[in-house]
């Protein structure tokens, strides 16, 4: 009697492999590293310029709207949290909640844009410009560089929201969602240094 059996051809995806895993596309991580290096150089330039103009930087920093900066920190942290919840929802094949969490992230991210535009409007009313002082040059260029990243992040979030509504993300097909999420978290991470450095430390 035949007792041995040949293994059946696999019809399903292999079981998950326990071990280290980089969430998202490898290319986005190289992009993130390039972005972090650029922001890092900006931060170092600000810190050492400040060291040579302490009184000027302290006086002009005091005029910044620290409440708006703190509110924007709350908005970005919340948007990041919503993105994490969206990824977790997709992992349990909950397409509608995934889309809803992403919509929440889009709205809070948009809130950041509104607060920041209000801040810029107030600054321009006071004739603050790139050439008005070294501090203002850094304040405007650093925050605007970051602002542009938030806008790109929002575009990515809207694309992911659209994908989530079509049920595009599910276990085994998470790469697009994880890739966009990694970019958004990078935007948040950079702000978590930019805010204390430019708005608070004096």
């Amino acid at each position: 009697m035949e007792t041995s059996t040949a293994p059946l051809p696999a019809r399903t995806a292999p079981a998950p492999v326990a071990g280290p895993r980089l969430a998202g596309d490898l290319a986005i991580w190289f992009f993130i590293l390039a972005e972090l290096l650029a922001f890092g150089v900006f931060f170092a330039a600000y810190a050492f310029t400040r060291a040579n103009h302490i009184e000027l930087f302290n006086a002009e920093q005091a005029a910044l709207n620290r409440n708006a900066g703190a509110l924007n920190t709350v908005l970005l942290l919340t948007a990041s949290y919503f993105v994490v919840r969206a990824v977790q929802a997709a992992e349990r094949e909950a397409a509608r909640p995934c889309a809803n969490w992403l919509l929440g992230a889009i709205l809070t991210g948009f809130g950041f844009i509104v607060v920041k535009l209000g801040e810029y409007a107030a600054a321009f009313e006071h004739n603050i410009s790139l050439s008005s002082s070294p501090f203002h040059m850094f304040y405007l260029s650093l925050t605007f560089f970051h602002f542009m990243h938030v806008i790109l992040g929002l575009v990515i979030l809207v694309a992911m929201w659209n994908g989530a509504r079509q049920g595009r993300y599910r276990p085994g097909d998470m790469n697009g969602l994880e890739t966009g999420a990694a970019y958004w978290h990078m935007v948040d991470l950079v702000w978590l240094i930019l805010f204390p450095l430019v708005y608070v430390i004096h």
């Binding site: 998950p16 071990g19 969430a23 994490v84 085994g172």
Partner: peptide, 8 residues
């Protein structure tokens, strides 16, 4: 399917 790395 990939290992869950995103927490709860």
């Amino acid at each position: 399917m990939s290992a869950n790395v995103h927490g709860t």
